Simulated assay, not measured.
Amino acid sequence: MDLPNFDEFQQKALAAGYDEVIEREWAPNTVLDTHAHPFGVHALLTQGEMWLTMNGQTQHLVPGSIFELKPDLPHAERYGAEGATYWVARKNA
């Protein structure tokens, strides 16, 4: 899969109304229990793997996977043995 570069991702996200775009890196085997964020999320996994659980469903995400979260949506995150990196656009309230 051909991934965009960070600048392309950032430009598209800002044009779509997101107001913050960052890169997040997670250590191997990190587990984040159920939590929520006050901002909306549009993210692209670029390295590693993760499992995202929301609404009772777990998705296995690999490089090239996109995920979105509405503000205040409870979810849990688990990262693989290599950790993970993703680019995330946030839409703050």
Rank of each mutant, 00 (worst) to 15 (best):
D7E: 15
S65V: 03
W87G: 07
E25S: 15
N29E: 14
A13R: 11
T58R: 05
L45K: 03
M50T: 06
P38C: 10
H35L: 02
M1I: 12
T53D: 02
P71W: 06
N5V: 10
H37E: 09
H37P: 01
T85P: 04
H60T: 11
F9I: 11
A89D: 09
N5C: 11
V31D: 00
G80D: 09
G56K: 08
A16V: 00
T58C: 03
F6S: 03
P74W: 04
H37N: 07
H35C: 01
R78D: 04
N92F: 14
E49Y: 06
K91L: 13
G83A: 03
P63A: 02
K70S: 12
H60R: 14
T46Y: 01
Q59Y: 07
E25M: 12
L45V: 14
V31W: 00
E25D: 14
D19S: 04
D7R: 10
R24L: 15
M1N: 11
L14V: 11
A81I: 08
D7V: 08
G17H: 09
L73Q: 15
T30K: 14
D19P: 07
M50N: 03
Q47I: 00
A27L: 12
Q59W: 02
E49C: 08
P74C: 07
L45A: 04
Q11L: 09
V62A: 14
G64V: 03
E23N: 07
A84D: 06
A15Q: 13
T34N: 01
A13S: 15
G80V: 04
A89T: 07
L69T: 07
N5Q: 10
E77F: 00
D19K: 08
G56I: 06
G40A: 15
Q10W: 02
